[in-house]
Design a protein around this nucleic acid. Structure first.
Lengths: 220, 220, 220, 220
DNA sequence: TATGAATGAGATTTCATTCAT
DNA sequence: CATGAATGAAATCTCATTCAT
């Protein structure tokens, strides 16, 4: 299993020193931002995120010069963790459909909805770090679905993009509800959706299977 | 079929004069607000709504003294139209599951996601107009589901609340996508969800069936 | 004499209504901004300008969305007044060199230094209003200098740009001094410069005569 | 010729160690600060000066505890160099007016405008180092002017303060122009001003000759 | 000593709401 | 009634200065 974002510096490199407290602050800000963004939407005041992270607001600006950058880093952060969940499900769950379900529910709990900003028009899909992380998630989730389709337990007319979109939509916080845990039906409706994915297909789907790359198209 | 929100004044009442342009302005504001709220979330500046509606901002305030009121009226506006869609589906579609599907897809197109603010903590569920509209929608949609369950084409462990929530979530515009039409996979994923609703049930669902009334609970 | 910026609306035009108080506020802001910008440089807090003008800060933003716009309008405002001074000097002062001196000292008192931002790299020289005002000032000041040169009282190797630049430089507030009136030597040094302009030329000048258009070149 | 600011420690003193890199850093900061202050005014962020000097911001603070101190040292730095230029002109240029011109143009190139902060209300004129450097510059520049006036080539109604002020004003970078070299007309207008200084006087000057000491008066 | 990081105070800008025409 | 203008409060962002490594 490869963690993408935690790129280790080459041994003997000249980068001065990462300074422990700065790293810890960065982590704390990312974690706080993920919660705030998922729970309260993209409009949370920066000061609130800073307070939740326990740092001054200017510290937040030092690490993430603007909102776009912060969101971008949160996406990377969550994507990395979700990728790990998919790898775990594949490795530990022998039944193909069970693996898919395990992944889906775990990803919802891991706030996969935080990946939604990727779909935004102004999201930078060319960023190298994102491309790498994205490819990793794409690879493992395609493996997850292919396994199910080859085993004949997953309908053939769906692709990873379908899963990712619906997963994100269904696990997004309902407006006005304070946090994800306060929406106990997420797992219910997710399970209904997963039942719809199970083979044999029960109806014809409009449109074509959505791949991961489709999500990067500006023109959806 | 009863339209709830267009309450006609009692005959012989003394309400001065409805003034044609005021009525037209109210309609334009409601339509504009529905689009803006669904597309850009609850944070759209009032001035933007006013501009989209083609009226001055103060006119908007004259019709809707505050954001809460405006949102409330938009909910009523959409709820009324969605109710009509359910009635039409029931009346014109002989097959029970086909009726459900027709309703779901039509409601998505009608921006049923604009009902989400109902789930917000600060939404006033005691308002008489809302109670009436709500009861009407509840009645017809329960009839829609009951028909399907009695016909054995709809799994028995789901209720209207499940449908409404998931429908809203799946049809909400993805962040950054300007309008619903720009998200062509909404109907794909909605259909997958509908396939999950079809009997026989393929897996056990966590939690209990969600009724319409469950959605009014402040503590979700 | 033609005032350029105070463009009168065509009779019978459809522009709604200028609203007296808004016009008065705009005037007050422009006057206040001219003083603050000339006295304290381009970094004066917007709130200070608003306070000096006696309006709320947001009112300032309504009239001038950003600092660039405000500065631009101040330039137009001052340019118009300086143009009028040149016209007056030409019309009322029979002696050519006396007219030039009268104009120079009056322009210094009128804060011609406020035109300095025109020389900045990010100043928009393409704006139609500015082009018109600029042409008017150019025309009258060239007439002013040509008169002197034809009368043989003004050295021939200088052009309007030379006058404008030096005039602006010499009348700019010295850093740290509160206001122009507190720099009583402005008129002394201006007169020394004017003496240097008088014919016959006492030394050869480096470079070429600077025209008005030269000042618009980004590459100075 | 006495260099004032490079005060050598008394022989036998106990100052620990000058540390070569600290001295070099101090030089680099002073040079960078002179450029930034002259080019972008007194408002340049400290961090920018530090970046331009190639040191960390805290290093800047170690050498110069606050902005006032930094500006003060820059003034001393430039004053010392300008004094040297005046001495050179006097020593090497036999013609009195030529010496004045040579000095003026050289001082402009040496950024004499960096002395302007001396005129600021909050500048400390009592500092011993400054008093010494100031006296030295005053002495040599008075000698420069007296020579010219005794030779009858420089008008009698001007004093060193007039020269210093006008020189500073005319050589200050125009707003938006990045560096002095980008303003090719500085020497043109300076020469015009010098022509105005030449005897015989062509007009009467308002005000009285400005001495060096006049510039120290808080109330100008 | 040199430095990057942290921070609060203040500057800039936006927006919901009220006011005057 | 309809509207553009005005406004304070809050959000975003910058920067001089201090701190910790």
């Amino acid at each position: 299993m490869t963690r993408v974002t935690a790129a280790a510096p080459a041994p003997g490199c000249q980068v001065p020193k990462p300074r422990a407290d700065a790293v810890r602050n960065r982590e704390r800000i990312l974690a706080a931002a993920r919660e705030m963004l998922v729970e309260h939407g993209a409009h949370v005041p920066f000061d609130e995120i800073a307070r939740r992270a326990g740092v001054g607001n200017a510290t937040l600006y030092r690490h993430f010069p603007d909102r776009v950058t912060l969101v971008h880093q949160v996406v990377l952060y969550v994507m990395d963790r979700v990728t790990a969940l998919a790898e775990d499900a594949l490795a530990e769950e022998p039944d193909a459909f069970a693996a898919l379900c395990r992944f889906a529910h775990a990803a919802a709990d891991e706030r996969i909805g935080a990946l939604c900003p990727m779909l935004s028009d102004d999201f930078d899909h060319e960023d190298p770090e994102l491309l790498a992380a994205s490819a990793a998630l794409n690879e493992v989730s395609e493996r997850l679905m292919a396994t199910g389709q080859q085993a004949g337990v997953l309908r053939a007319d769906v692709a990873v993009g379908d899963l990712m979109i619906a997963l994100s939509q269904l696990s997004r916080p309902l407006p006005g509800t304070a946090c994800l845990d306060a929406a106990p039906f997420v797992h219910r409706h997710l399970q209904l959706f997963l039942d719809g994915l199970r083979a044999p297909a029960r109806s014809e789907l409009p449109g074509a299977p959505v791949t991961f790359d489709d999500l990067k198209q500006k023109t959806m």
